[in-house]
Design a protein around this nucleic acid. Structure first.
Lengths: 211, 211
DNA sequence: GCATGTGAAGTGGTTCACAGCA
DNA sequence: TGCTGTGAACCACTTCACATGC
């Protein structure tokens, strides 16, 4: 298996969901599956799936019969580089921050939640699944001292930019932003923004046009 | 202003964020702005912004000076069809469900949260911002009786498919899915899945490759 | 002169159609 | 024969380059 550099971004984005499907099938005692089955469960077409495997350099497909799930899982993991562990923090201990902290999805795939941050005194000192809540003032130092790579921002819009600045100052290089603010960051920092309101708006759009 | 059918989907997806930027500028007392300013705050290039306005059929830009914010807001609203109000429900009253319910973004743009649903007896009967939590059993009937268009699924993965089925049975035609499950739905139903774990994985990917 | 507006070129990703192999 | 694997065609969106108009 050869790890081609220059796999399309969109392909990489689908790998986690493929991995989840494979895990689920393995858990049901299956050892192999066709691209049709795998793709169906992941919500893509079989061609798309095969193309992705091809681009990623996976070779555990067997013509005429399908893919060996165990081998495929290994290949996808390698492709995703999931060996190294990555530390992250969550800023904002409101409902969303708590939801994220307790989400099982956040504790998989080599990711470690190292700390949470909030401005409210009532939040500071609390603990979720063994992870403590610190005061926002500590953010920069914490990020630096613990070699945190990713900052998840779950604060109100007004506080988002400041949180981002502190995290970046401490050395964070990736930001997952749940506030609707468009963050201003250096080019070297990767930002993904998930605007929950905008997502719902998109569906509303669809709902209206469907009449 | 002519509402061209066949505006690119990606353009439509950016409209809500443009609208937010315009609102914020208006709130600061500004009456006009250039594409450069508007685009910068929305996190896109100025060309992108102008192209979008062009595609949407907006005509409130004035060569040499910029856009009239009041007029532009009206045009974008029309383009988004935001006159009609759309009802939605949230299924799952865990941290995520609560976070969504109290999110300001969810109560804007002609969207009405009509009800929330959960299986836990302890949740049923509670109230958030005047919206009640009902038992999951009521879902189908509620959706039908209240003409709900959109179901937001914030349940664990195991419960997601059932929730979707009930909502669709009741007449919902759009689903915003926060569970990692790939839902099986009829073709007529639009599903948007936001897998929070997958988003973080994507950043982890970036973090690893940056070494 | 400065900022909008837009056909044309470019880019990235998906789908097609079919070759290759158990 | 059945399913994988992949170059080529296709499509959607973005960026460029420049015409347009206040």
């Amino acid at each position: 298996m050869q790890l081609d550099r220059d796999v399309p971004l969109s392909t990489m984005e689908r790998l986690p969901s493929y991995l989840r499907v494979i895990d689920s099938l393995l858990a049901h005692g299956m050892r192999a599956a066709t691209s049709d089955v795998l793709a169906g469960r992941a919500g893509v077409t079989s061609v798309q799936f095969r193309k992705d495997m091809s681009l990623v350099g996976a070779v555990s497909g067997v013509r005429g019969s399908g893919y060996d799930l165990g081998a495929l899982r290994g290949e996808l993991r390698t492709a995703m580089g999931s060996s190294e562990r990555i530390g992250f923090v969550i800023i904002g201990f409101g409902n969303l921050g708590r939801a994220l902290a307790s989400s099982p999805a956040f504790s998989r795939g080599g990711l470690d939640l190292l700390g949470m941050f909030d401005v409210a005194e009532s939040a500071v000192g609390q603990e979720v699944a063994g992870v403590k809540v610190y005061h926002d003032e500590m953010l920069e130092a914490f990020v630096r001292d613990n070699n945190v790579s990713i900052a998840v921002i779950a604060t109100p819009a007004e506080a988002a930019q400041l949180a981002a600045d502190q995290a970046i100052l401490g050395g964070a290089r990736e930001i997952l932003n749940f506030s609707p603010a468009a963050l201003q960051v250096p080019e070297t920092v990767e930002v993904r923004t998930i605007d929950l309101g905008a997502e719902l708006q998109m569906l509303a759009l669809h709902a209206r046009s469907a009449r």
